[in-house]
Design a protein around this nucleic acid. Structure first.
Ligand SMILES: [Zn+2]
Ligand SMILES: [Zn+2]
Ligand SMILES: [Zn+2]
Ligand SMILES: [Zn+2]
Lengths: 143, 143
DNA sequence: CTACATATTGAGAGTAAGTATCACATACAG
DNA sequence: CTGTATGTGATACTTACTCTCAATATGTAG
C-alpha cells in the first residue's frame, strides 16, 4: 500500500516512474532515519549496482519536486534525505537519541510565523529548519 | 572599536589571535550580508594572497567556537558565513530582497520551543534555522 | 626579555557532494 | 505500436571542505 502510495504521489506530481525511481523511493521509504548522500547511494547500489550516482541525485531531486522527499541540512553536518508521509513543505523534530524524525504540524509553526510577522514586520515566505532534541519516547525511557 | 570587540570576544573564548584571524574577522565584519565559502576566501585572498584555504576554514571554525560567526545553511543552497553582533547561539531573519540578516531574539523563539515541548513532549536541545521572507524596510518600500 | 610548549599556518594532496555532458534507452501519450 | 520527450549511466568536472606535516608564531612562565 505504502509503496503504491509513493508511486501515486510521484505520478500525481507529473513525474515519470522508472524502475530506478521505484527502487530509490523504496530505500528511502524503509530507512528508519534520514540517509546521507553516501548512505543512500550505497544502499541503492547494494540493490542494483548498475545505478549511477547521477541518477540517485536526479531521483532525489524529482522526489523533492513531488514533495515526497525533504532534505535536512544543518551547519557542520552532512545533509540527510528523508521520505515524508506529510504532503507538502513542512518542518521536523529530530531526536538525537533514537534518530526518529517527526513532522511538525502547521498549527505549531503557524503562530510562530505570525509572531515574527507582528513583532518584526517581517513577512515570512519560506523557512526550512529542524529542531533537535529528545523525543517523548526517549524521554520516558530515561526516567 | 568594533574590531577591538571582536578581538576581545576571540580572546575571551580562549582562542588565539593571529593576523590571519584578525583579517578574516574583519572581512566578515564588514560584509553587508553572509559570505559564501568561495566569496569569503576570495575576499580574504584579495587582502592577503598568502593566506591558505585551510586557514580560512579553520578560522571560521574558531570564530564559530567563539560564538562570533554563524553558519547559515539551507537545503539546495550554498552555506553562508555571517559575523553576528549577538553573543551566543541564536537564529536569523533573512530578507530575500535586500539580503539583510537580522537576529531573532530569544523572546520570539522561546515560546515556540515551549509549545513544541508541551504539545509534542519533545525536549529541545538545539535548533538552527533561518526564516526567509521580506523585511519591514523592504515591505515599506513596496507599498 | 627570553625561552619554551603549544597552537596555528601554508602548501598541497585527498575526500565527498553534487553537476554537466552526451550517446543510448525507456516511459507513456496518442 | 510508435514517436518523442524524458530519464539513464559512464565519466569528467566543480565546489567545499579536510588532512598532513614541516615551518612558524603565539602567549605564558621564568
Ligand atoms: Zn516530514
Ligand atoms: Zn528518540
Ligand atoms: Zn546573528
Ligand atoms: Zn529587505
Amino acid at each position: 500500500m505504502a509503496s503504491e502510495t509513493v508511486r501515486d504521489r510521484i505520478l500525481a506530481a507529473g513525474e515519470r516512474i522508472t524502475p530506478q525511481r521505484d527502487l530509490i523511493a523504496g530505500v528511502l521509504e524503509t530507512a528508519p532515519r534520514p540517509l546521507s548522500a553516501s548512505g543512500l547511494y550505497e544502499a541503492v547500489a547494494r540493490l542494483d549496482p548498475r545505478i549511477g550516482r547521477a541518477t540517485v541525485f536526479r531521483t532525489v531531486a524529482a522526489l523533492e519536486r513531488a514533495g515526497i522527499v525533504e532534505q535536512l541540512s544543518l551547519p557542520g553536518e552532512r545533509s540527510g534525505y528523508l521520505l515524508c508521509a506529510t504532503v507538502g513543505h513542512h518542518h521536523h523534530l529530530v531526536c538525537q537519541r533514537c534518530g526518529k524524525v517527526s513532522d511538525l504540524p502547521e498549527e505549531t509553526v503557524g503562530p510562530f510565523f505570525a509572531t515574527i510577522e507582528s513583532d518584526h514586520g517581517f513577512s515570512v515566505d519560506h523557512a526550512s529548519f529542524s529542531v533537535y532534541g529528545t523525543c517523548a519516547g526517549c524521554s520516558a525511557r530515561l526516567v
